[in-house]
Structures are given as C-alpha cells and as structure tokens.
Simulated scan of single mutants.
Amino acid sequence: MNLSMIERGQALWRPVEATLRALQAPAQLAARLYVGSVFFRSGLTKLRDWDITLALFQDEYHVPLLPPDVAAVAGTTGELVLPVLLVMGLAGRFAAAGLSVVNVVAAISLTDIAAAALTQHQFWGSLLLALVLWGSGAWSADAWLRRRLSPSA
C-alpha cells in the first residue's frame, strides 16, 4: 500500500467525519429529549394519584435503604426535576448522572421485571451514560453558558 492510497482514503473519509461531527449536537439533543420525556412522564404519572404511588413503593418497588414514603418523594422529584435540566442541557451531566441513578434504582427495585422492561432501562441507561461521558452537546444551555462566560469570547 503506497502513501497516495492512504492519502486518497483519508480524503474520502474527511467529509464523512465532518458529517458525523455535525450530527453530534442534534443526536445529543434527541437523546436528551427522548430520555427526558420518558422520565418526566413517569413522574407525572406518579403525581396523578399519590395514594397509588405510595402503595406501589410500599408493595412493588423495593428501594434499598429508603423507607417507601421517602423513596416515593425522592423518585418522583428526580423524575420531574432532572428531566427538565436534561432537556435544557443545563447541568446536563449532573442531570444525566442523576437520572442514571433513578434508572438503576427503578430497575433493581422491581422484584419481577419483564425482559422487555429491563431492555428499555438498559437502552435509557446507555443514552444517559453517553450524555454523562460526552456532555449535553453544542445545542444546550451548558454550551451557551460556556460561550457566554468564556473570557476569549
């Protein structure tokens, strides 16, 4: 393989890489919107009938180390506050990490979780992990604040 073949390969790859780089911000936004909506809707469901929510935390969800009423308040609060932060991309890594905890606790708290439900939790967890690792992206309040507060801007 000679150098010109490598250079041609690199030249062919550059626009692909540029396109992939350009798709990062919309992909991060899509992940934030999708995961945020899942958890926010779950929190709203819990608020609709608080007595049923308390009963579920008493009988179905066995959250380790927390009394059921405390777990219900903490879980519902997390499902309502963290998704808003995540969707805005404000403290995005914090919100994604917090929702990761909510996600893991939800998955392990159900004594009999269906395989399809577990797969959903794993998918949400993978999206949240990506947001923790790579951040909220260029289309986020975090990025806007960085640009705004940067001394070089």
Rank of each mutant, 00 (worst) to 15 (best):
A153V: 13
G9Q: 14
G43S: 10
A141E: 09
S152E: 13
V104W: 08
A95W: 04
M1D: 12
I52W: 10
E7K: 15
W139T: 04
A138D: 08
L56I: 01
L66V: 12
H121E: 09
S136K: 03
L110K: 10
W124Q: 05
A115M: 13
Y61C: 02
Y34L: 14
L56D: 01
G36P: 01
L56T: 00
L90D: 02
S37I: 13
A153H: 14
A74D: 07
A114W: 09
V84A: 04
D49M: 06
I6Q: 15
A106G: 14
G78A: 08
A115N: 11
P67I: 02
S100G: 13
P83V: 00
A141I: 11
D112G: 13
A143D: 05
L80H: 04
G43Q: 06
R14W: 08
V132T: 07
P26W: 08
A25G: 12
E60N: 07
T119F: 12
H121V: 06
A72G: 01
Q58I: 02
R146Y: 14
A115Q: 13
R146W: 15
L127E: 00
L128H: 01
V16A: 12
V70N: 04
S109W: 07
S100H: 04
D59M: 09
L131D: 00
T53P: 02
R32H: 10
A27G: 14
L20C: 14
A96D: 04
G137H: 02
A74K: 03
F57L: 04
F40H: 03
L131Q: 00
Q120L: 15
M5E: 15
F39D: 00
G98C: 05
L145R: 09
A138W: 07
A116E: 11
D49Y: 06
E60F: 04
M1K: 10
V84D: 00
A116H: 12
D51G: 03
L99N: 00
N103R: 03
Q10A: 15
I52S: 11
T111V: 09
R147T: 10
P151M: 05
A116D: 10
L12I: 03
R93S: 05
V102H: 01
E17D: 13
G92K: 05
P83W: 00
L127K: 00
A107T: 13
L56N: 03
S152W: 12
L56S: 03
L99P: 00
S4W: 14
P15T: 11
Q58V: 01
R8P: 00
L99V: 01
D112Y: 10
V87C: 06
Q28M: 13
V101S: 09
A27F: 10
